[in-house]
Design a protein around this nucleic acid. Structure first.
Length: 217
DNA sequence: ATCCAGGCCG
DNA sequence: CGGCCTGGAT
């Protein structure tokens, strides 16, 4: 197979269809969601986002200036809520200071620059930074998460388990198209969540049926 | 009564 | 590496 990633993408899209990922109203909501969703389920994130929305805290300025205790109470359902509250507030305060909360202006910079900038903030690691760049910044970077690594490993496509190497592997072997990056990442999450779990459900897995995966052992 | 989820920090 | 933490599934 010459282009295993493209083949996989087409197979997943055929099986699952478009995922309509990251239904957020604003860029800031995507940033907040990206931090909140670390190591938890999206279901819990939705509760936290709605709590923040009710208190009108889904803006750079309001969240950056909100009392930490108040944020903590609202985002509790996501877990690690004290750390995440601190991170949310810190990131907001940073954005307020550096672009007055104007995210369009913030994202106007070069991708590489933005990535470094985001990675300096506490609470934003590589995956979160790339999620923010791809979904809020509309930058063409591929997001690597635990699901992606696991799927790749089982397909025998994981040569090195280094974040940036895996990312470049995707970026080199796919059409340079933001929409495809978004859709593919979302499809991998769907696959990981429903079939390629810790204990995989190979029997019913569409990727196995397509002959793209060797299956268990 | 565990186990795990769309990680990150020190 | 351990610690951070809630909610749902097993």
């Amino acid at each position: 197979m010459e282009y295993p990633l493209i083949t996989l993408y087409e197979s997943l899209y055929k099986s699952f269809g478009p995922q309509h990922w990251w239904p957020a109203r604003t860029k800031f909501e995507i940033i907040a969601g990206a931090i909140l969703t670390q190591q938890t389920t999206w279901k819990n994130v939705e509760k936290a986002i709605e709590n923040l929305r009710k208190e009108h805290l889904l803006s750079v300025k309001n969240l950056g200036e909100a009392p930490l205790r108040k944020i903590e109470k609202l985002v509790r359902p996501v877990g690690y809520y004290r750390q995440k509250s601190k991170h949310l507030k810190g990131v907001s305060a940073y954005l307020l200071k550096h672009c007055r909360g104007d995210l369009n202006k913030f994202f106007r910079k070069e991708t590489k620059t933005l990535r470094k900038e985001l990675l300096m903030l506490r609470g934003i690691g590589k995956e979160t930074a790339d999620s923010i760049l791809l979904y809020a910044g509309e930058k063409r970077v591929f997001v690597i998460d635990a699901y992606t690594r696991r799927v790749l490993q089982r397909l025998n496509l994981l040569v090195e388990n280094d974040y940036d190497k895996i990312r470049r592997f995707f970026e080199k072997n796919l059409p340079k198209n933001i929409k495809i990056y978004r859709e593919f990442h979302a499809l991998l999450v769907k696959l990981g969540k429903e079939f390629c779990k810790r204990k995989p459900l190979c029997q019913s897995c569409p990727v196995l049926k397509e002959g793209l995966c060797p299956g268990k052992l």
